[in-house]
Structures are given as structure tokens and as C-alpha cells.
Design a protein around this nucleic acid. Sequence first.
DNA 1: ATTTGCTCAGCTC
DNA 2: GAGCTGAGCAAAT
Length: 112
Amino acid sequence: MKETSWNDIKEAIYMLVQLVPIGKVVSYSAIAKVLGISPRTVARALVQNPMPIIVPCHRVIMKNRNLGGYTPRNPQFKRKLLEIEGVAFENSKVSRTSIYDKELWHKLDLSL
DNA sequence: ATTTGCTCAGCTC
DNA sequence: GAGCTGAGCAAAT
């Protein structure tokens, strides 16, 4: 089998992020575990992001329910955007009910 | 609830 | 070839 190509990992991440429904969010570790990589690699891939249009980075958050980095330029905008999508917020944090991580793993037959 | 340390991978020198 | 930084995570206090 081919080694985990950097470009391939990015592709997988984009696919997973696009697979997340509106009003829901996924954490870096979720994608990282699914791909068998470290959460930092996922973040790194999102930073590289050749196609930001197909990769809604704003839909990817930390496992701590925090928004993560994304863009320290307009953090308010990101929260608002997610809120419009239908994501429930809890005092500057994403509500656990809007987390799609577990569902994602289950969808991939990983079972955690 | 808050603080500290660790880990993994890519990027730079 | 070696070292550094980082869009995080987990554990300890």
C-alpha cells in the first residue's frame, strides 16, 4: 500500500468535512483518528487548503468545543456563520449536540 | 476551571 | 540533515 501521501490526506479530509451536514461540526481529532493521523496534521492540511471553497474550515472545531484557530482575524464572523448554519452555541463554545464526530465514526464503521 | 506537558507532522534554516 | 513551530489533545492540579 502506498504511504500516506500528504496530498491524499488532504483529499480525505476535504471529503470528510464536506460529508458533515449543515448545523453540525467535527473536531480535528475525529478526522485525525479516522485517517489514522495526528490532529495536527489535519489542522496543517486545512491551513494548506488548496480549495477553501470545498473545505468549510469553519465546520471543523476543537475537541474542547472551542472554535480553534481558523482565522484570528474575525473570530466573531466564524461563530456567526456556524450559528446561521444551525450550530448551537454555548457561551462562545460549540454545543455538544452539534458535534457530528461520533456519527462520523459510526458512518465509517469504525465504532469507537 | 485552569495550567502544564506531550506528541506528530510539516516547514524552514 | 537538524531544528522549530503549530488552526491540538490529554492529563494533572
